[in-house]
Simulated assay, not measured.
Amino acid sequence: MTEPTFDRSELLLRRDAVMTGRTDGELSRLVRAGGLVRLRRGAYVDQLLPPDAAAVHRLLVHATVAGLRREAVVSHQSAAVLHGLPLWDVPLDRVHVTRQPPAWNDRSAVLRCHVARLRDDEVTTIDGLHVTDPVRTALDLSRSLPHEAAVVMLDSALHRGQVDHAELRVRLFDIAGVPGSRSAARAVAAADGRSESVGESRSRVVLHRWKLAPSTLQFDVRSKDGALIGRSDFAWEEHRLLGEFDGKVKYRRLLKPGQEPGDAVFEEKRREDAMRDENWNVVRWVWSDLRRPDRLAARVRRARDRDR
């Protein structure tokens, strides 16, 4: 997967505008008239800000790094955005950079500066910016994010082939002993590239937490003659139980050319009936169930124990 490209013409820095003869008063009038949108102090775009938070943050990264007086490497969630690594429940209000020691940690309204040693092979270049590579970025986030958000990020990166599980495990040794290294090791151990959505990743974290870990993911259900009936998000094979996380994204993904959403839902119902005909029980849950993990765990446990 290639990183999104950045069009520098989208961004106008005050310093560049002043050099071409514009004044602060003119910039202010353009903002009031809607000709410019203020991204942050001293940085503007000549269009509406994109609705996607990651796209806005990408602009913010370029605007902020351009104003730094000392060299820094874009890192953490800012590096994740530049690499196109998917994030869930991760704040994007500040640009994150890393400097080599003996620098110092720094924080402002728009900047968070970390201090850490970076090898040359841990730094790459995107759109002219020095950026931590995908593996170092994933490990830095695994150290600093809550466990659930870290697993979601790692699952997605693994699923998309942006990082490799074996390399993640090897490079954990590079951060051994630093703050958060144990959290990173825990997240890497829990990550699984077979998860296909944020909802599936969050569900797996909940199920593990409540000691209801499925025996496998993306389980192929077959008829007695070996024909493929369908695939289930989760399976507890010993208990003949299948688990399905239902999100709107899933049904959009199942749509065939010319189909309406209702058609995909109907086909999903037929698929579930066929699985039940093969003596599989099915338990389903949705986004709102993830807000009450105790209830979700109780429902899965009841379904799992029905065969006893």
Rank of each mutant, 00 (worst) to 15 (best):
L85T: 12
G21T: 04
L87R: 01
Q47S: 14
L36P: 06
L27I: 11
L49Y: 03
V31Y: 13
R22S: 14
G67E: 14
R41V: 14
G42T: 01
M19V: 05
G25Q: 15
L87H: 07
L30M: 15
V65T: 09
E26Q: 15
L11Q: 05
G21Y: 02
A55H: 07
R69W: 10
V18E: 09
D52M: 08
R22L: 15
E71Y: 11
A53E: 14
L59A: 03
H62W: 06
T64Q: 10
G25C: 11
L87Q: 05
R38P: 03
L11A: 08
T20Q: 12
L82G: 01
L27F: 09
G25N: 14
V74Y: 06
A79Y: 07
G67T: 12
V73L: 08
M19W: 00
M19G: 10
G34R: 10
A54K: 07
H76S: 00
H83C: 07
T20P: 01
R14N: 01
A66K: 05
P86K: 00
A33R: 15
R58T: 03
R8H: 15
L39D: 03
M19P: 02
L11P: 03
S9W: 08
V81H: 04
L12V: 06
L85K: 02
V18P: 03
Q77C: 12
L68A: 09
L60S: 00
V45D: 01
Y44G: 04
H57S: 10
L85G: 03
S9Q: 13
R29I: 05
H76G: 01
V56C: 07
R14V: 09
R70M: 12
A66E: 08
M19C: 06
A80G: 06
A17R: 06
H83F: 00
D16Y: 04
Q77K: 05
G67H: 09
R22C: 09
V56E: 05
G35L: 08
S75I: 08
V61G: 00
E10V: 09
D52C: 10
R41C: 12
L27N: 11
T20S: 14
A72E: 04
V61Q: 02
V37M: 07
T20Y: 07
A66F: 09
R8M: 10
Q77H: 15
V31L: 12
R29A: 15
G35E: 14
A63L: 03
L11D: 01
V18H: 07
V56K: 00
A72G: 07
R38L: 07
Q47E: 09
L39Q: 02
A54L: 01
L13A: 01
A79C: 06
A63W: 00
A72W: 03
Y44Q: 01
L68P: 06
R8F: 14
R70S: 15
G84D: 08
V37C: 11
R69E: 14
A33M: 12
L12E: 02
L68G: 07
